[in-house]
């Protein structure tokens, strides 16, 4: 505020009022987050415990825990990660190491990535049902199972692939950032020693961007673990007596469990403690993942900054 000129009280007054308004807006945002977190922690904390984390729901969702939903969430994001990380990393390698930035194909890929990031999650759900479940799954059944229903129904595989598409932009953008942070000098040194492009990428560039790739994968997992709309029709189930063991099995999932508990319960007051604890588990999981990603990213940014200069 030292740059304010003296002798213009009206302007100074207006200035303070405007800054106060901006401050109030920021304070409201901070307060809202605090209220959400405080509400969830206050109401959900008591119900947490080892028993809650491992046991299955009982008494028509009014008792027991969320063990199967936690298991299903982990299995789902694991499958998703296996699908999305290789494709995302290779796409980023293409965009930053191979393509000329102004080539038509590179532009098209960039445009597709940014638009993919904006497609509504429910449209991914429709796509997963229309493409993976009905077209691919139904096709496999027609060709290999003589029309018997095995793959052409919602399952953990189709849900994971749908989520992989949804999180593809996250992996591409984060990996791209990491690739860009590798100094050009490192590549040139490698080329000067006679290494080919593939050797340079696999032994110099990718090892140095490992932290960034890891960040992208974690952010994708965090995003995937919280999405409900894409998996509603592609594999998530309301309640299952046993854990998924095959790719064609359906599964329970934390986010979907929150949705079901809070909208389909006949007696919301009786479900409430369990509901809050489930939300707390989901929030804790996603925050933990995000915090890890942010910490790793901060470290690799700090590590690479001096070399850029």
């Amino acid at each position: 505020m030292s740059s304010r000129l003296p002798g213009r009280p009206s302007a100074a007054w207006k200035g303070s009022a405007f800054v106060a308004l901006c401050g109030a807006a920021a304070a409201i945002i901070v307060a809202m987050l605090a209220i959400i977190l405080a509400d969830v922690v206050r109401n959900g904390w008591a119900g947490l415990g080892w028993e809650f984390l491992v046991s299955a729901p009982s008494e028509g969702m009014r008792g027991g825990g969320v063990g199967p939903a936690i298991f299903g969430t982990f299995a789902l994001v694991l499958l998703m990660t296996i699908a999305v990380v290789p494709v995302g990393v290779l796409t980023a390698v293409y965009l930053f190491e191979y393509a000329r930035p102004d080539s038509a194909f590179a532009r098209a890929v960039n445009l597709a990535v940014s638009n993919l990031a904006g497609v509504p999650s429910i449209v991914f759900g429709l796509f997963g049902l229309g493409f993976f479940v009905r077209f691919v799954g139904g096709g496999i059944d027609r060709v290999f199972h003589a029309g018997e229903l095995a793959w052409g129904k919602p399952s953990i595989l189709w849900a994971a692939l749908t989520l992989a598409l949804l999180t593809l932009p996250v992996v591409i953008v984060t990996t791209g950032e990491a690739l860009r942070a590798v100094p050009v000098a490192a590549r040139e040194a490698s080329f000067a020693l006679g290494a080919t492009k593939w050797q340079t990428i696999s032994r110099v560039v990718l090892p140095q961007s490992l932290a960034g790739i890891l960040t992208g994968a974690i952010l994708a997992v965090s995003r995937g673990a919280g999405e409900v709309a894409p998996i509603m029709f592609t594999g998530a189930a309301y309640f299952l007596p046993k854990l998924p063991t095959r790719l064609t099995d359906q599964f329970m999932e934390l986010g979907y469990h929150v949705y079901v508990l809070s909208t389909q319960s006949p007696d919301i007051e009786a479900t409430k403690p369990i509901l809050y604890s489930t939300v707390l588990v989901l929030l804790f999981l996603t925050f933990l993942l995000n915090a890890t990603a942010i910490a790793i990213r901060a470290r690799f940014r700090a590590a690479l900054r001096p070399q850029d200069a």
């Binding site: 290789p86 494709v87 290779l90 796409t91 390698v93 293409y94 965009l95 190491e97 191979y98 393509a99 194909f105 098209a108 890929v109 597709a112 990535v113 638009n115 993919l116 497609v119 449209v123 991914f124 429709l126 796509f127 229309g130 493409f131 009905r134 077209f135 598409l165 593809l168 932009p169 591409i172 080919t196 492009k197 593939w198 990428i201």
Partner: peptide
């Protein structure tokens, strides 16, 4: 070298393919 170049280009095509497939398959139904 050639093989890796081809793999990388194919992977990059996946994003474009995804957008097109989403439009085609949601529209198809």
């Amino acid at each position: 070298e050639r093989l890796f170049g081809a793999v990388v280009r194919t992977a990059a095509f996946a994003a474009i393919l995804a957008i097109v497939l989403i439009f085609v398959f949601v529209g198809r139904e």
